[in-house]
């Protein structure tokens, strides 16, 4: 409901953000929580910056309040479809991997597969539905959830999912294996070996169990994305130090996005370094991805214009 979202935005952000301004530095110093999720993802508090709605214009308005200092500019660097890429790698999904390697539109490809139409003839509506399924898979959605999301009957949703798993059988295998492993061991591993525990995975209550199963499917995907971001941040901070770049600062991490502040005339050079370091994480001592990672860069005076 609009009313609820608006009053929440007003209460938690536009009214209260100024209270977080430090009287000496005149800036807002958010606190990043390293140990608040089960997956390895960071959280933040005072203020929580990772909870501002992405899509709504009102959320965008809040972001506009985050600005660069004079003669400076903000750079946003965002991993493109990182979780789909991880799913493709983790579950070894041949079709998806091929598509990422060829830099194809992944949702159109999914649509053409499940609706059995030519890639060029995929309609907007079909693409939207495919996108919802893709994201639904990542978050372990049920056919009922999906039906609600894309406004179709439960029966139709089930058909879509069946078609989906028919075209990407590896994903179904991944989901089943993950749950099986979790039931036995109580935890799941992400690509890098971090564990997320799900202590109620064998709960008697169906709803509890179901909720944990979906979280268990999601954890390796979300967790691996977080690990990639961590490696990128470590690389970037090392690089900036090595190159003695002191006037560019890494300011925020919001899931797949990093925000930097840099002098205006440096933005091109810095953007290049950011892209270089963030994409190079695809190959590390810890894991080599079979598909490339790509990064979208946006530059602007405030965070709102960066999206």
């Amino acid at each position: 409901m609009d009313w609820r979202q608006l009053s929440k935005l007003k209460n938690t952000y536009s009214d209260t953000l100024p209270e977080h301004i430090n009287p000496i530095t005149k800036r807002v110093h958010t606190s990043f929580l390293l140990a608040a999720t089960t997956t390895g993802r960071l959280a933040s508090s005072d203020p929580n910056l990772q909870n501002i709605p992405i899509k709504s214009d009102d959320g965008k308005d809040i972001r506009k309040a985050f600005i660069a200092e004079k003669d400076h500019i903000l750079i946003s660097a965002d991993y493109n479809q990182i979780e789909m890429r991880i799913l493709a790698d983790l579950a070894d999904v041949k079709e998806l991997k091929k598509a990422f390697k060829n830099n194809e539109d992944i949702h159109s490809l999914t649509a053409s597969q499940i609706f059995d139409v030519d890639l060029k003839k995929v309609s907007e509506d079909q693409r939207r539905k495919a996108k919802a399924i893709n994201f639904g898979i990542i978050y372990g959605i049920s056919q009922y959830g999906l039906a609600k999301q894309i406004n179709v009957s439960n029966f139709e949703a089930e058909e879509f999912l069946n078609a989906y798993f028919g075209k990407f059988p590896e994903i179904k295998v991944y989901m089943d294996e993950t749950i099986k492993f979790c039931r036995k061991s109580g935890f799941v591993n992400n690509i890098f070996g971090r564990r997320s525990h799900f202590i109620s995975i064998n709960d008697k209550n169906y709803n509890v169990r179901n909720f944990q199963e979906r979280a268990a499917i999601n954890a390796p995907i979300q967790g691996s994305a977080s690990e990639i971001m961590r490696l990128a941040m470590i690389r970037l901070s090392k690089k900036l130090k090595e190159q003695k770049i002191q006037n560019t600062k890494m300011l925020l991490q919001i899931h797949d996005e990093l925000i930097f502040e840099t002098p205006k005339n440096e933005s091109k050079r810095i953007s290049k370094i950011i892209i270089e370091e963030m994409t190079s994480v695809a190959k590390s001592d810890q894991h080599s991805f079979s598909i490339p990672l790509t990064v979208d860069i946006n530059i602007g005076d405030n965070w709102g214009t960066l999206q």
Partner: peptide, 8 residues
């Protein structure tokens, strides 16, 4: 990053 903060 926290020490740096961001301008509002």
């Amino acid at each position: 990053m926290e020490i740096e903060g961001i301008k509002i």
